[in-house]
Design a protein around this nucleic acid. Structure first.
Lengths: 326, 326
DNA sequence: CTGAAAGCGCTTACAG
DNA sequence: CTGAAAGCGCTTACAG
């Protein structure tokens, strides 16, 4: 039942070659003689051989695994963003034979890399005050951020042009006739929150509109609902900095007797699943999270292979998805 | 910059002891002499030693990692259930020093275990036709299912008493005066879908109520919306087999001019985040997914340590969470 | 209680 | 193109 797994040694014996040759066949080294290769392949399949990863890792010094690091508070697993990142990462990681390890412990991350359990990490939902990005870059450990870093550290990151996205929202609201604008912001200790607010303000100013109302939110549904209660009554164009918050904003607007989009037009940000569950369906700024996640993996793998290469960043363009709320 | 990591060997040299002794200290073997232990601990901290996991895995034959296996279609990462499982698993896995590996490739799973990359796996969202559970159990590989298996295979699983949960919903609807009941089911090729429907039917019969309307859903929001359109107009009590579906059902009900709860009372299932985003907030049957996930990890770890032990199952009790929809 | 030594299962220069 | 051999960094009987 619990018989020992087949080793390279046994395959070599069956095939009548050396372990080195079997290893070469397994790893697809091109120089192996055709006939020999076939003999070995046959031996592999008859023995049911499967290489032991720990042994390989020990000599190659590669874990064959990357980490997806969440903030310590576990609420973020419920954020739709998380699922989108995962579904963007999985398909690109798979053909590479790399594992995706989920962790919520920032404390563990450095050790996990040092122990050789992780080749590198992707950090999502980082706060400006988070020491981890700097820690990792200082130690020259492979890391990719899912947004512009809060402090100017040389680090590889992927982002969407957040400010441009906010401008897209404003332009649309204005085009639809809105003049008294307001925004529900994201958390301002994170760069996406900051950049969306900045982009919003700049666009409003560019249109020569009066100073907009700004109410603070935190990227959660409840935060959105709370913020909505603090909105001035005469707003006719609202930019909510995330769809999840918007799903909390809309019922409050309805309670306050405001019809969407007739009385107030609303644009969200993300184009995540909650946008569709909104009533009415939410017009929103789309960020291509799945593509961004795939790019993060590529950049990370690149950094794992060449840690000395300079850091870089990739910024995606947002697009507007028009539905019924604006 | 890229200096070689510190090894046991070096720590031993610094401490003036053998590698074996350092290893014992690192692994907390109690028999080490107090003074020696202190010398070694000091050497560990001055050298900044961190054990290499691959080397350890190679001899212990333990990956120190378990897999969370999603179905191949990636839609399920957007299901709120997924996030709840992750947030239940993470805290219990952490003190154990075990990694959580996410995978959506059923094909890979068996190999990953054989390669020693995974000590065992937790399977979620399995369909009755899914060959993986049987495959794994046959090979005597450690596996835990997140629900009763569709076919009677000897397998370890955790479940909530789905039928009892549905009965809770029916009892509540009836207590609130509903008499013309209906249900939107989950996918019937999965046991939770089957069991919730069975429990619903049995409870309706127990109350002596007429044959209820049964409309098929698939645990998605869109599926819920579609199902809602097929509901008879005179229903006054509706059991929707998941909160996510309910969030799709409610807007359709509203469109059809039905007020909730005045015209039709609605009870969901799960008590997941979408229940709160519903308008009105959803009365629902709570399944303690986080606790269930924690239990799955415990059972899995147990099986990894003693694969020959008989399989077992743990069934949690559902509870009713009353909000405004019923 | 401690150490010398074997061994886990691979990969990879190095010869030939 | 192939093989003998060293070595990756640990753990763990086995002596003493």
């Amino acid at each position: 039942m619990d018989r020992r797994p087949v080793t390279l040694e046994e395959v070599a014996r069956v095939a009548g070659v050396s372990r080195a040759t079997v290893s070469r066949v397994v790893n697809g080294v091109a120089t192996v003689d055709r006939e020999l290769r076939q003999v070995v392949e046959k031996a592999i399949s008859t023995t049911g051989y499967v290489p032991n990863r720990a042994a390989r890792s020990l000599v190659t010094r590669r874990a064959g695994a990357i980490g997806l690091v969440l903030p310590d508070e576990d609420r973020t697993v419920h954020d739709p963003y998380f699922g989108r990142v995962v579904s963007g990462v999985l398909p690109v990681i798979r053909p590479l034979g790399v594992q995706l390890v989920l962790t919520a412990s920032h404390e563990q991350v450095v050790d996990d890399i040092r122990q050789g359990r992780l080749d590198g990490v992707i950090l999502i939902h980082t706060h400006d005050a988070d020491p981890l990005p700097r820690l990792l870059t200082r130690a020259n450990l492979p890391v990719v951020l899912a947004a512009r870093p809060g402090k100017p550290v040389p680090i590889t990151y992927v982002d969407v042009d957040q400010a441009a996205g906010a401008a897209l929202a404003v332009d649309h609201l204005v085009a639809r006739g809105a003049r008294r604008l307001a925004t529900v912001t994201g958390p301002l200790e994170r760069t996406p929150g900051q950049d969306r607010l900045r982009g919003f303000r700049e666009a409003v100013a560019r249109h020569g509109l009066p100073e907009p109302a700004v109410v603070h939110g935190d990227f959660t549904r409840e935060g959105g609902a709370a913020a909505a209660r603090g909105l001035p009554a005469d707003v006719d164009g609202l930019f909510v900095a995330s769809d999840l918050m918007a799903s909390g904003v809309l019922p409050v607007l309805r309670q306050r007797g405001l019809r969407v989009p007739q009385d107030v037009r609303v644009v969200g940000f993300d184009d995540s699943p909650p946008a569709l569950e909104c009533d009415p369906p939410l017009t929103t700024v789309r960020q291509p999270v799945e593509d961004m996640a795939a790019e993060m993996v590529r950049l990370l793998v690149e950094r794992v292979e060449r840690p000395d290469r300079p850091t870089s960043s990739v910024v995606f363009d947002p697009t507007l998805v028009v539905r019924e709320s604006a």
